[in-house]
Computed example of a mutant assay.
Amino acid sequence: MLWEPNEEDPQVGCAYFPADKTGRPWGTLCSYGMSLTPMALDEQAEDTDTKRAEIIVYVNEGETELDDIANWVRWAGAFPFLQEPQTFLGWGHTIHLHNVFEHSELTTLLTLSSIVTADNEPAFQLEGDDVGFIWLTFLTDAEYAFKKENGVNAILDLFGEHQHPVTLDRGRKSYV
């Protein structure tokens, strides 16, 4: 387990929805509990950022090792509330962690609006606030450095050039 919450930490879980339950060609992992606490948006928040959100990751239906991914979903869902002062996750944010998965070049969490159109609309409302999804995808060290130097739009261009998959590919090689 990557993060073991204590009683003071936000209680964020992760649910798995297989393809046959969603009608999509992939499975979906989604945090739950993150949206119960509003994030602390600041002046760097984009118009698309919402103070209440849940983390979403898409996985190939054949993916059998979901525990590590689910733990990253849970950890990312709690991340804004574990900071002092509290912060937020929004479009284009990165969290560099070094080793995300065993035998993988992926080292960094990148949060974006989902590339699945249906998941870009608010999922529901809580206390009058829209709750949206934040798509969690992953970068290599070289891509992280490229993003820091050139911005998130440059990473999105790379994703487009390389037909970045909707689903997580933990064995993906760097696009840079």
Rank of each mutant, 00 (worst) to 15 (best):
V12S: 00
G13W: 01
G13A: 08
G13L: 04
G13F: 04
C14H: 04
C14S: 08
A15H: 12
A15T: 12
A15S: 15
A15I: 12
A15G: 08
A15R: 13
Y16L: 08
Y16G: 02
Y16V: 06
Y16T: 07
F17Y: 06
F17L: 07
F17R: 02
F17E: 06
P18N: 12
P18Y: 10
P18D: 14
P18W: 15
P18E: 15
A19C: 13
A19S: 12
D20F: 13
D20V: 09
D20M: 13
K21Y: 02
T22K: 01
T22H: 01
T22G: 01
T22A: 04
T22P: 00
T22I: 01
G23E: 08
G23D: 10
G23P: 05
G23H: 10
G23S: 10
G23F: 06
G23T: 09
G23K: 13
G23I: 11
R24A: 15
R24P: 04
R24W: 15
R24D: 15
P25G: 07
P25Y: 06
P25V: 04
P25D: 09
W26L: 05
W26P: 00
W26V: 02
W26E: 04
W26Q: 02
G27I: 01
G27D: 00
G27E: 00
G27F: 00
G27M: 00
G27W: 00
G27A: 02
T28F: 04
T28E: 12
L29V: 07
L29R: 07
L29N: 04
L29H: 08
L29F: 02
L29G: 03
C30G: 05
C30Y: 03
C30R: 10
C30H: 07
C30W: 01
C30K: 05
C30N: 03
S31M: 11
S31A: 12
S31Q: 12
Y32T: 03
Y32P: 01
Y32N: 05
G33A: 03
G33M: 03
G33E: 03
G33K: 04
M34N: 01
M34D: 00
M34F: 03
M34L: 06
S35E: 12
S35L: 09
S35K: 06
S35V: 08
S35T: 10
L36V: 04
L36N: 11
L36I: 02
L36W: 09
L36C: 05
T37N: 14
T37C: 14
T37E: 15
T37Q: 12
T37R: 15
T37M: 14
P38H: 02
P38R: 09
P38Y: 08
M39E: 10
M39T: 11
M39Q: 14
A40K: 13
A40E: 13
A40W: 11
L41G: 07
L41A: 09
L41K: 05
L41D: 05
D42N: 15
D42V: 11
D42R: 13
E43C: 10
E43G: 11
E43M: 09
Q44G: 14
Q44A: 12
A45S: 07
E46G: 07
E46M: 13
E46T: 08
E46Q: 15
D47R: 13
D47L: 12
D47P: 09
D47V: 07
D47C: 08
D47A: 13
D47T: 14
D47S: 10
T48G: 02
T48C: 07
T48A: 05
T48K: 04
T48I: 03
